[in-house]
């Protein structure tokens, strides 16, 4: 099982022939991911990394049967790429691009409503199902196969969590980097719900950060529906209000979206919250082994 992607997933790379697309597609292929082709407008009909290049996503889907796409398109064109993938019937779109204008994402998010497409990101490291399929830019070797799901707004913190979970003797089923932008496709709650319904996942690490209300929403959902242990961490306990901390969405706007407020809500909803990022793995191990 696992969630979102597995050995059967057929991956298309949008922005295939660019520097980023080429580098990460190569890494994904080396990991064993089934990359079936890519899209770069006006380069259709050529081969890249021994795989066919298409002019449009629709054509690529028709020829390859791709059901997942990953986007490495520059910010000015990325929302268009998301909508093109949805229009072509892609089930899962993972958008890596950082720096997409917010109003572009407002439109893209609306466009996705009523389609069968799920978006992960933008501004995210992607999704990986350990040992099966990597649709993202994360270092594959960190994700040892196991039974812990990870949902996180941050890239390197996801790697950190996975590494700790592995060192604690557990390992990862699927890790989802949902992204650090104000508007993202898949929320913390949605990822948590998928993990709760995945028989292969026995516990979940939930990593959030200051800004927005997604962690609180996920925690409240968990209180009613949670059936597996969750260890939570919120980055930015020491972040000053009103300042953007790297991620476009990481900004304290009011009393409700501080790290302290989120940690309190998560705790009240039954999530085991750690205040030090060094304690994520050991805490999960303690709970699981009980």
């Amino acid at each position: 099982m696992s969630i979102l992607v597995n050995k059967q997933s057929k991956i298309l790379v949008q922005g295939f022939t660019g520097t980023e697309g080429t580098f990460h597609a190569t890494q994904m292929i080396e990991y064993g991911t089934n990359v079936v082709g890519g899209v770069t407008p006006n380069k259709g009909g050529t081969l890249h990394l021994d795989r066919p290049v298409f002019n449009t996503v629709a054509e690529a889907v028709k020829e390859t049967g791709a059901n997942v796409s990953i986007i490495f398109v520059p910010p000015a064109f990325a929302s268009d790429a998301i909508m093109e993938a949805a229009n072509a019937g892609i089930e899962l779109v993972v958008c890596i691009t950082e720096g997409i204008p917010v109003q572009d994402m407002v439109k893209a998010k609306l466009y996705l409503q009523g389609t069968k497409t799920r978006l992960i990101g933008p501004n995210c490291p992607g999704v990986i199902t350990a040992g099966e399929c990597k649709v993202g830019i994360m270092p594959g070797f960190v994700f040892k196969k196991g039974k812990i799901g990870i949902v996180s707004k941050s890239g390197t913190l996801t790697y950190e969590a996975s590494d700790q979970v592995a060192k604690a003797g557990l390992g990862v089923s699927t890790a989802v980097g949902i992204g650090g932008d104000p508007i993202i496709g898949t929320t913390t709650r949605e990822a948590l719900e998928m993990f709760m319904n995945d028989p292969e996942t026995e516990g979940v690490v939930m990593i959030g950060e200051i800004g927005g209300g997604m962690e609180a929403e996920a925690a409240r959902w968990y209180k009613e529906n949670g059936k597996k242990p969750v260890v939570g961490f919120i980055a930015g306990q020491t972040a000053p209000p009103g300042r953007r901390m790297g991620h476009a969405g990481a900004i304290v706007g009011g009393a409700e979206d501080t790290a302290a407020a989120k940690m309190k809500i998560m705790q009240e909803c039954g999530i085991t919250v750690v205040s030090s990022p060094a304690d994520i793995g050991v805490t999960m191990a303690k709970i699981i082994k009980k």
Partner: peptide
């Protein structure tokens, strides 16, 4: 870079890990 008021400087790759590192310094 965001200037803060403390006594331990830090340099990190990734925004989330950078915030987490700040938190760890405090702890």
């Amino acid at each position: 870079f965001v200037k803060l008021d403390g006594n331990v400087g830090c340099m990190v790759n990734g925004a989330g890990l950078a915030m987490a590192t700040m938190d760890m310094i405090k702890l």
